[in-house]
Design a protein around this nucleic acid. Sequence first.
DNA 1: GGTGAAATTTAGAACCC
DNA 2: GGGTTCTAAATTTCACC
Lengths: 157, 157
Amino acid sequence: MSASPELDAYDRAILAILQRDNTTPQRVIGERVNLSAPAVQRRIRRMEETGVIRANVALVDPARVGHPITIFVEVEVESERAELIDAAKRGFAAVPEVQQCYYVTGEADFILVVTVASMADYEALTRRLFFADNNVKRFRTFVAMDRVKVGLEVSLA
Amino acid sequence: MSASPELDAYDRAILAILQRDNTTPQRVIGERVNLSAPAVQRRIRRMEETGVIRANVALVDPARVGHPITIFVEVEVESERAELIDAAKRGFAAVPEVQQCYYVTGEADFILVVTVASMADYEALTRRLFFADNNVKRFRTFVAMDRVKVGLEVSLA
DNA sequence: GGTGAAATTTAGAACCC
DNA sequence: GGGTTCTAAATTTCACC
């Protein structure tokens, strides 16, 4: 997945369609962007191989699979020693309830997005994840009341 | 998309596969979960109709489409009057750089995930989005240094 | 990048547990 | 109600121009 830099207008148009529905037939995509189906296919294939398209996935509604609550958590650590940070990354990433985890600059060190079945579950999770970890200095909780805009990897302009 | 009741172990197993790669042929899925392809197909169809599967999409790498920088933003508003909150929701959701937007409880009112081409672009965005909005009291910026775990809608245990 | 045909997959109907 | 087998339609895939 090395060089494949420039995406032209065709690629962008194709991506915009696939980001909304990647089951759209190549023939239909071709009609919309004025290309033949095989041409569309070659471009998709290339973008997959070069990593522009990271994955093709089904998006599952958290509430429908037992995770009705979404919570943002800011985590501040005691020490930013590389080994400890790496350990924290691995630890957070391994937790199923942790849907997203970013290592950030600013007033916090990590931002997590977790989904849980109940606040009791969240409370239990914080105990396992934060209170049991000596390197966690502090964390702040933000419970989502409304999922105004949900994340794909990136939405194109 | 009314009642959709309980997902059994087959449904969960199918979802787990589709969340990693929804181009997996139904025949292959059937082999892995010990079901015939049509049975798999009916279950997928039903989960799509009932909203368990929200969408089938291609995940695009932000860095490869000109958005190498990911930033979390906590936004605090002056007034939480319903009209103002709704206006803010609509405003945030309409901005392409805003990949995710949640209305939350806690020390902030909104949490945004934005992706931009450069810090200059982010600075320009903050001007448009926050400084120009009288109802924004304060915002805090967290620049992502490492995308430890990236978000799908939800990852199953 | 386009056109064609082959191979695979998906969609549907009839049948059985 | 759900699963299986079979058939038909659509799509993906690969030749070649």
